[in-house]
């Protein structure tokens, strides 16, 4: 009888152990330097502040936050959400990095449009990877994204395969930038390349590259501060700095302004703040999730179960006495 009860208890403990171990171990990674903090979960982003006049007076008179984020990002109270679906280890070649990290969307389209011309000129995947032999190890995550909306979320996400890219070694960003800038330089100097393509392509500075990455699903590994510091220092950014887990960009529109992108415990963006010259917040997005409620329920259920078992055992023991 006692043995059976012990077996049952062991089974329950093992089950709880698996659950808690799972939560703790999900973040474990192969990297010895940086560790992945990504977890399958959903984060909700809310526009908690938007000063349209301030934005237009600071950044550009005919712009709004929709330039940065999809949907109703210019409406205070609008929400978006992102569900991290999973991730895999991925090795990027220079060609992969060029297409998926370096290029902006319009450059990517142009590159595909002029594929024939580029291949003929020796800028296809094989030749680029042969000339630039660096490879880059990354965690490649996939998420489902619901764009900002001031109403209810649609059931289906707007984007089911939104990328999350975390380089295992942040210094790789510098190599990628150098290699890609060199390739673009070659193409721009190549007379056989169509001038329309040359018009679209341009090489970029470290600040521009980092700014672009921030909107292309850049996520960071732990420890966050060191990781961000490493990116910024390796790239040699002049207008970007790090404060804790926050990346601070000094930007210039109609006036100078700053953009602060904070990263949460999972390594993805947790807040996005735009401040004007006088440090007044003109736009802010923050994220939240319901994980704490889940843990609270789990604790209550576990505590209740334990209390119930103790009560039953005690009652039986008392009866038998």
């Amino acid at each position: 009888m006692i043995k059976r009860k012990m077996n049952l208890s062991l089974l329950s403990l093992s089950l709880l152990g698996i659950i808690f171990f799972g939560f703790l171990s999900t973040a474990a990674s192969a990297s010895t330097t940086y560790q992945l903090g990504l977890r399958k979960s959903t984060d909700e982003y809310t526009v908690i502040q938007y000063d349209d006049d301030g934005w237009k007076a600071t950044i550009k008179p005919v712009s709004n936050p929709k330039e940065y984020f999809e949907g109703d990002a210019n409406v205070t109270g609008a929400k978006s959400k992102q569900t991290i679906k999973g991730w895999v280890d991925q090795t990027y070649t220079t060609y992969d990095a060029l297409l998926s990290l370096y290029f902006a969307i319009f450059e990517y389209i142009a590159w595909n449009t002029f594929q024939g011309n580029l291949t003929a000129a020796g800028y296809n995947e094989t030749t680029i990877n042969a000339n630039y032999t660096n490879t880059y190890n990354a965690w490649y995550g996939v998420s489902a994204e619901w764009w900002f909306t001031d109403g209810e979320f649609e059931e289906k996400p707007n984007n089911t395969l939104s990328p999350i890219i975390i380089m295992k070694d942040p210094s790789d960003f510098n190599s990628i930038l150098d290699d890609c800038n060199a390739i673009i330089e070659d193409i721009l100097n190549d007379s056989t390349i169509d001038k329309n393509l040359k018009f679209v392509l341009s090489n970029r500075t470290a600040d521009e590259f980092l700014w672009q990455l921030a909107f292309k699903g850049l996520a960071i590994a732990e420890p966050h501060g060191n990781y961000l510091e490493s990116i910024v220092s390796e790239l040699g950014c002049e207008n970007a700095s790090v404060s804790g887990s926050t990346l601070v960009f000094e930007r210039y529109g109609l006036t100078n302004y700053t953009v602060e992108i904070s990263y949460g415990d999972k390594g993805i963006m947790s807040s996005f703040t735009v401040k004007d010259l006088s440090d007044t917040v003109i736009y802010q997005i923050t994220s939240s999730n319901s994980e704490w409620l889940f843990y609270l329920i789990l604790i209550i259920v576990s505590a209740s179960s334990v209390a119930l078992v103790v009560y039953v055992v005690f009652r039986n023991w008392k009866r038998k006495r």
């Binding site: 799972g22 171990s25 990504l38 569900t83 679906k85 999973g86 895999v88 996400p157 089911t160």
Partner: peptide, 12 residues
């Protein structure tokens, strides 16, 4: 099953 990172969580 979701502890395996490459086992993708459903979209919805």
């Amino acid at each position: 099953l979701q502890l395996f990172p490459d086992y993708l969580l459903a979209d919805t």
